[in-house]
Simulated scan of single mutants.
Amino acid sequence: MQEPYLLTPGPLTTSRTVKEAMLRDWGSRDGAFIALNTRIRARLAELAGATGTHVAVPMQGSGTFAVEAMIGTLVPRAGKLLVLVNGAYGKRMVRMAEVIGRAVTAIEAAEDQPVDIGALDRALAADPAITHVAVVHCETTSGILNPVGDVATVVARHGRRLLIDSMSAFGALPLDAAAIPFEAVAASSNKCLEGAPGMGFVIVRTDALAAARGNAHSLSLDLHDQWKGFEANAQWRFTPPTHVLAAFGQAIDEHTAEGGVEGRGARYAANCRILVEGMRALGFRTLLPDGLQAPIIVTFRMPADPAFVFETFYDRLRDKGFVIYPGKLTVADSFRIGCIGRLGAAEMEAALAAIRATLDDMGVRSGAPA
């Protein structure tokens, strides 16, 4: 059977050429591998509009490793972090700060609402101890797009520093350091850049990184130390995920060939339109209004039809070659379908046909919620 299409927020479906890039073994101290690292780091900073002001620091591990490295290195031990929370990944950043011993507070919004800009403004005015603010760009708990530009404006006005988890948005949604001033942004290889999982990265202001020496709570998650290693000899401190880096280099080339952020974002937006329109035609209802929906992953409310059992629906779709995601909400019973990865209109239409056939097989008359 052909491998299934992953309609998920990552890991996701990659191109054959990205997969094939992992067929070669690399020496981690070899000149060709060092050149690959250097090219990737430069391209990442360029994608963020941050060449000359920021540096890209790759880290072994998933995106969560990169986010924890960002918080642990850049928030001083005597600093205080304010996290804007409207889903599981904002809550995860709060937990990270607690575990590594940083003072932390949170402003929580409902999972189907964007983060509260007014509450942020008031909190920063009331608490001068807050040094950094963290926000999730696209919160895949619901699929909501947070107003990071407005957040950045408020944070800058109060003279604080902004950390962005752009894990599920970087490479497909605009994030330019000239327009959205940030101290650091974290993302990973296996999301909108369509590489393989196993590497995260942080794009961070060079001056902030230079000042962060000694902040980190962990040797392996010390962004400053990792950066100094790259600056000294362009090599990783510890064994790098060589095959993942090779795949990522190919993925970045394909991202450029597609038209960069604009081209990749346009394909995902088209995927999202096809999916939402097709699901609504079957009676399904999206959790979010279109104005809040990022073209990354869409949350659908669970159908009221008693014949609908999510586990059966999931398994039968998987048998037809499509893998979706269960829900992660507390505000509503739901499931999620992703729009990203090496998928286009043909694959989205095929997924909808499989969903229609599965509903017929299950005897589900409508996807409408209660």
Score class of each variant (00 low, 15 high):
Gln2His: 14
Tyr5Ile: 13
Thr13Val: 12
Ser15Pro: 11
Ser15Ala: 15
Arg16Ala: 15
Arg16Cys: 07
Val18Tyr: 06
Met22Asn: 03
Leu23Arg: 08
Arg24Ile: 03
Trp26Gly: 03
Arg29Ile: 02
Gly31Ile: 05
Ile34Asp: 05
Ile34Leu: 15
Ala35Met: 09
Ala35Lys: 06
Ala35Ser: 09
Ala35His: 06
Arg39Glu: 14
Arg41Gly: 02
Leu44Tyr: 04
Gly49Thr: 04
Ala50Asn: 05
Pro58Thr: 13
Pro58Asp: 10
Met59Leu: 11
Ser62Val: 02
Thr64His: 14
Ala66Ser: 06
Glu68Gly: 01
Met70His: 00
Ile71His: 01
Gly72His: 06
Gly72Leu: 02
Arg77Ser: 08
Gly79Trp: 03
Val83Ile: 04
Leu84Met: 11
Leu84Pro: 00
Val85Lys: 00
Asn86Phe: 00
Gly87Tyr: 10
Ala88Trp: 02
Gly90Ile: 01
Arg92Asn: 03
Arg95Tyr: 07
Met96Asn: 05
Ala97Glu: 00
Glu98Gly: 04
Ile100Met: 05
Gly101His: 05
Glu108Ile: 02
Glu108His: 12
Glu111Met: 09
Asp112Ser: 15
Ile117Asp: 06
Ala123His: 13
Asp127Asn: 10
Cys138Ile: 07
Thr140His: 09
Ser142Gln: 04
Gly143Thr: 00
Ile144Lys: 06
Val148Thr: 11
Gly149Ala: 15
Val154Lys: 02
Val154Gln: 05
Val154Tyr: 00
Val155Glu: 06
Ala156His: 07
Ala156Met: 01
Arg161Ala: 02
Arg161Phe: 02
Leu163Phe: 08
Asp165Met: 06
Met167Ser: 13
Phe170Leu: 09
Ala172Met: 11
Leu173Pro: 11
Ala178His: 10
Ala179Met: 01
Glu183Cys: 12
Ala184Pro: 10
Asn190Lys: 12
Gly195Gln: 01
Ala196Glu: 07
Gly198Glu: 04
Met199Asp: 11
Gly200Met: 01
Val202Gln: 06
Ile203Cys: 14
Ile203Ser: 07
Asn215Leu: 10
Asn215Gly: 12
Ser218Leu: 04
Asp222Lys: 04
Leu223Phe: 03
Asp225Asn: 00
Gln226Thr: 01
Thr239Glu: 05
Val244Trp: 14
Ala246Phe: 00
Gln250Tyr: 13
Gln250Trp: 15
Ile252Met: 08
Asp253Thr: 14
Asp253Ile: 14
His255Pro: 07
His255Ala: 14
Gly259Cys: 14
Gly259Ser: 14
Gly259Met: 11
Val261His: 11
Glu262Cys: 06
Ala266Val: 14
Ala270Trp: 10
Asn271Ile: 14
Ile274Lys: 09
Arg280Glu: 15
Arg280Lys: 15
Ala281Phe: 13
Leu282Glu: 13
Gly283Cys: 15
Gly283Pro: 13
Phe284Ser: 10
Leu287Ile: 08
Gly291Ala: 09
Gln293Asp: 15
Gln293Met: 05
Ala294Trp: 00
Ala294Gln: 06
Pro295Lys: 03
Arg301Met: 14
Met302Val: 04
Met302Cys: 03
Pro306Thr: 11
Glu311Ala: 11
Gly321Arg: 07
Gly327Cys: 09
Ala332Pro: 10
Asp333Ile: 05
Arg342Phe: 07
Ala346Arg: 09
Ala346Pro: 07
Glu349Lys: 09
Ala351Ser: 08
Ala351Lys: 07
Ala351Thr: 10
Thr358Tyr: 09
Asp360Ile: 06
Val364Tyr: 09
Arg365Phe: 00
